[in-house]
Amino acid sequence: MELLPNITVNHYLGLSVLLFCLGAFGVLYKRNAIIMFMCVELMLNAVNLSLVAFSKMWGGTDAQVFVFFIMVVAAAEVAVGLAILMMLYRNQHTTDTDVLNKMKG
């Protein structure tokens, strides 16, 4: 028995696009590096959501396996990103991105 028969793949796709846009907006608009970081994760998870929905639609499992790959890559990115953030904080004592204006032109 289908649990929620009225929810189709389109609903999942809509939610995923919404989350993705929220994430992209946050990365481009927010000034705090930690929040930007969360927004990148939000974008990746929006992709995961749509992949799982599509996987159910096509009846295959390859997209679900891909989701695990994305999670692993996201974890690796977090490790590197937080390290860069730590270094930045040590040198400038802030995680505000407005201080990153040494190069122009």
């Binding site: 993705f20 994430g23 992209a24 990365v27 481009l28 590096a33 930007m36 990148v40 974008m43 990746l44 992709v47 990115e77 590197v80 990103g81 860069i84 953030l85 270094m87 930045l88 040198n91 400038q92 991105t97 990153l100 040494k102 190069m103």
Partner: peptide, 17 residues
Amino acid sequence: NEAGFKYFFLGSLASAI
């Protein structure tokens, strides 16, 4: 620092897109 930071965020953004 600045280069690494910018590369990281815009690179991740590009990967997500």
